[in-house]
Design a protein around this nucleic acid. Structure first.
Lengths: 349, 349
DNA sequence: TTGTAAGCGTTATCAG
DNA sequence: CTGATAACGCTTACAA
């Protein structure tokens, strides 16, 4: 008898078969899996053996349908800029998958239908089809329609980054301002008194926070902050314009002896500008720092000092908050700021 | 009556409610969705309106349980090297999610329990729990236990990259050797007669193919290929050792006037070596090329010529082959090599 | 502690 | 072309 185009089962073992093999009812097998303490040890043993023997694993669809738990979380992939790829797609995503796996959860990756399409539509689809227990959002803006939307939907969610006040949410973030302040202190300890800054896309909260942290710490320490009057533009700054901006500052009246950049890729532009001005990168010439600690840092010469994000702790914290909501725990909506680590390398040390 | 900790339904609309609203049986609603041609146009209209009105979408778990189709594919995230992050995690993954979305499929990301853990165990779990219709594997090795394993399992799968012969599989790959041959021709057209090569991790098939393509084309054109006697080591080459290797070649008897690198990050090491030898990168000095066309290329000075991978066509081709298997079409196991594009920039042009 | 009965929301089968 | 009935595999009451 030929199998039809749709085969409801791939020949996978079912709970019924396990029950038969162990000589118990299928309910006992279910209990052995979901509430082991309710099964007599000796029975449990027999069932466990049968499960192992047959390589049984519950059908997740059946389980989800019955219990309501999807054991899956959705991650809305941030839009990517071709000139400045989102580092979250690499390290953070892996950390998230690992953290989820440790909690018995899977990660479903999704994106808006088109780059310019409304991300809330993609969210609606996923939620309406009940494919996930909760959502993880990243790269959250001050006024973020996604946050407002999922909050209205009532789906459990957490965000990496936070909106402005007024939108209750569970968030995890890094202390962007404190991280940049630590950079300033590091450079000050090296004797630098005039420090330059290269940022971009300051409309992004984390970029704005980095600049703010930089300025505040310079002020506090009585250092001269040398920054572009008109900060270089949007996310995808053409490298040439960033280089020009830095060169201008290096030729200005308060020539900085060190430069902090808002990202590792921007630091690369600083390297170029410094060299174009006939100066050297490093403690002897112009010290440079980046942000993110991407692998690029170690391939530069000198290697780039950078701020490392605690990606695994972030992922773990996000997941803990998300699952608490999924379980129905009453958790106050609040967030946590995790500390970063300054990795000092040749460019400043 | 308080809701228990598990709420089987989130209050989502069910097919029953739609049926009632449209004044038809729930079966008709199902038909309207899955076999519209079997429903009278006027009824279809009424049902569609009710669906839109109520924002109904079928529960994917129920649908999966009943039909056997999970509408989800699994992507086994490649292990990442901290010194040379896998570019597949960024652009390719996005392309894959988009291609899947266009086919009504979602992407489930998964990884081995631990970096060193057996990836086949992770595959088994996913398959046994029937969470996916098929698998996408990337970074396939010549002797790949994952390929052998999923083939034995009988799960539909495709691979980005291919094993050695003898393991039937559906694969999509780029023409690594042809891409590097094109690089050589490009450099030859610029007048270069002695061309250096920097590779790494030659045990990886794609890295080996790039070197092979380089050597073959140099031979064909009668050019002098200047390569390291002992190619630099494993995936995570300490940048310093790669730089040293290139510097040695630049001081050797057949000083190359151009350098092809096996990746963009390796090209960065070439830049450093060239400059350390007091030479300039570019058509006037030592021309340099990379591989992958990562965003880094545009941030270098001069900007880096590189080989661009057709990530979206690759993702589309992979998905087409995978879904054909899922549908049960009898497709001969074979592969396709997609062409790359050489993006010429200042480092060689 | 274990077995029995019911139902989660959907789609396939088969009458009308 | 439509509507009743059964089943997918599992878990949660409840009864034994």
């Amino acid at each position: 008898m030929p199998e039809g185009p749709h085969r409801p089962r791939r020949g996978a073992t079912t709970i019924e078969e396990v029950a038969r093999a162990a000589g118990v009812s299928r309910q006992t097998v279910s209990n052995a899996l979901n509430a082991p303490h309710r099964v007599r040890p000796e029975t449990l043993e027999r069932v466990t053996a049968a499960i192992r023997e047959l390589g049984y694993q519950p059908d997740q669809s059946a389980r989800s349908l019955r219990s309501g738990a999807r054991r899956t979380i959705g991650y809305l992939a941030p839009v990517d800029d071709p000139l400045d790829p989102n580092p979250l797609m690499a390290g953070f995503l892996e950390a998230l998958v690992d953290a989820a796996g440790a909690e018995g959860q899977r990660v479903l990756l999704f994106r808006p239908a088109a780059p310019s399409a409304d991300p809330t539509a993609a969210i609606d689809e996923l939620v309406a089809a009940r494919q996930v227990d909760g959502l993880v959002l990243a790269d959250v803006l001050a006024e973020d329609t996604r946050i407002a939307h999922v909050a209205r939907l009532g789906v459990p969610f957490v965000s990496f980054g936070r909106t402005g006040p007024g939108q209750p949410q569970h968030w995890v973030d890094i202390a962007n301002d404190a991280a940049m302040a630590a950079v300033v202190r590091h450079l000050a300890a090296l004797g630098h008194r005039r420090i330059g800054y290269l940022g971009a896309a300051e409309e992004l909260p984390w970029m704005a926070a980095r600049r703010a942290g930089f300025l505040a710490e310079c002020r506090r320490l009585g250092l001269t902050a040398v920054t572009d009057v008109a900060p270089v533009g949007p996310l995808g700054v053409p490298p040439s314009s960033a280089v020009a901006a830095v060169r201008a500052l290096l030729r200005g009246p308060d020539r900085p002896t060190a430069f902090a950049a808002g990202s590792d890729l921007l630091a690369l532009d600083v390297y170029e500008a410094v060299r174009a001005e006939g100066l050297a990168v490093g403690p002897g010439g112009v010290a440079v720092t980046g942000f993110h600690d991407t692998p690029l840092c170690r391939h530069l010469h000198p290697a780039l000092t950078s701020v490392r994000l605690p990606l695994r702790p972030i992922a773990a914290a996000l997941l803990a908050r998300l699952l608490a909501q999924v379980r129905g725990d009453v958790v106050p909506t609040e967030g946590v700021e995790l500390p970063t680590e300054l990795v000092v390398r040749g460019s400043s040390g």
